[in-house]
Simulated assay, not measured.
Amino acid sequence: MYCIDTSALLHGWKRDYPPDIFKSLWDNLTELGQSNNLISPDEVLLELKRGDDDLCAWMEEREYIFIEPDEEAQKVVAEIVNRFPDFVPEESHDGVWADPYVIAVAKVKNATVVTGEKAVGPGAKRPKIPNICQELGIECITLLELIRREGWTF
C-alpha cells in the first residue's frame, strides 16, 4: 500500500510523467486506488484544489483515494508536529498543510510514503517528508520507485 503526497502528484503530472504522454501510468494509479493500494489523506486533495487545474479535476474524479485521517492518525500528526517543530512551516496562507497527515496515515496504515520531496542534510532549516519518515521508520519512495516496484513499463 502506498500513501501519496501532493508533491509526487504535482511533479508527476506537470513535469515528469504528463498524462498526454504517460496515460497508462495514470490509468495504473487509478487501478491502484480502486484496489485500495493507493491512498492519501483528504488534506492532499485540499492542497491540489489550490491549483484548480486539470490535475485537481482528475483527482476529484478519484475521491476514493482520499481518506479522512482517523483518531489514531490525528494522534500521530500531533506527535510529529511536537517532536519535529522545525517541520512545521512558518505560515500557510490557507491553513492547509498535508505533509504530517501523509506521514501519519502511512504509519497507521503501514503504507509506504510516495513523495516528490528529497531529504535534506542536518544543517537545513526545515526537514522534509523523507527526513521525518526516516526518523519514524516509515518507508519513503519517489513516484519512479513506485513505478519500478509495480513493474510498470511504458
Score class of each variant (00 low, 15 high):
Leu10Arg: 06
Arg148Glu: 15
His11Asp: 00
Val120Trp: 03
Val113Ile: 14
Gly12Asn: 10
Glu31Gln: 14
Ile147Trp: 02
Ala73Ile: 01
Val105Pro: 01
Gln134Val: 05
Ala8Val: 05
Val102Leu: 10
Asn82Thr: 03
Asp54Gly: 03
Leu55Glu: 09
Phe22Arg: 08
Phe66Trp: 09
Phe66Tyr: 11
Phe87Val: 02
Asp70Lys: 08
Gly121Ser: 07
Leu38Val: 12
Ile4Met: 13
Ala106Lys: 14
Asp16Lys: 12
Val120Leu: 05
Glu68Ala: 06
Ser24Ile: 07
Ala8Ser: 07
Glu79Asp: 08
Lys109Thr: 14
Val114His: 13
Lys23Ile: 13
Arg62His: 15
Leu25Arg: 07
Arg50Pro: 06
Asp53Tyr: 04
Gly151Thr: 06
Trp152Met: 06
Leu48Gln: 13
Val113Phe: 13
Lys75Met: 07
Trp13Cys: 04
Glu68Ile: 05
Lys109Arg: 15
Glu90Trp: 08
Val114Met: 10
Asp20Glu: 12
Met59Pro: 09
Gly123Pro: 01
Cys140Ala: 14
Val44Glu: 06
Gln134Ser: 14
Tyr64Trp: 14
Gly12Phe: 13
Val102Ile: 15
Val102Gln: 05
Asn28Trp: 03
Asn36Ser: 14
Val105Gln: 07
Ser40Lys: 08
Asp53His: 04
Ile80Thr: 12
Cys56Phe: 07
Ala78His: 01
Tyr101Leu: 02
Ser92Lys: 11
Leu32Arg: 05
Gly137Gln: 08
Val108Met: 00
Gln34Asp: 08
Pro41Ser: 10
Cys140Asp: 10
Thr142Ala: 13
Ser7Asn: 11
Arg15Asn: 01
Gly51Phe: 05
Ala111Arg: 10
Val105Met: 10
Glu79Tyr: 04
Ile132Leu: 03
Leu143Trp: 12
Ile141Tyr: 09
Thr153Lys: 11
Gln74Thr: 03
Leu144Ala: 13
Tyr101Cys: 03
Leu32Met: 11
Ala78Tyr: 05
Asn37Ala: 11
Asp52Asn: 12
Glu145His: 13
Met1Pro: 12
Pro19Ala: 04
Gly151Val: 04
Gln34Phe: 09
Val96Asn: 15
Glu72Phe: 03
Phe84Asn: 08
Thr112His: 08
Ile138Arg: 13
Asp16Ala: 10
Val120Cys: 00
Ile129Phe: 02
Asp20Phe: 09
Pro18His: 05
Glu145Leu: 11
Glu150Gln: 13
Val113Arg: 08
Pro19Thr: 01
Leu10Glu: 02
Ser7Glu: 03
Lys118Val: 09
Pro19Leu: 06
Ile65Glu: 02
Glu135Asn: 00
Trp26Glu: 09
Val120Ala: 02
Gly95Phe: 07
Ile65Gly: 02
Pro41Asp: 13
Arg83Phe: 02
His11Trp: 00
Tyr64Leu: 12
Pro130Gln: 13
Asp86His: 15
Lys107Arg: 15
Leu55Ser: 12
Tyr2Trp: 14
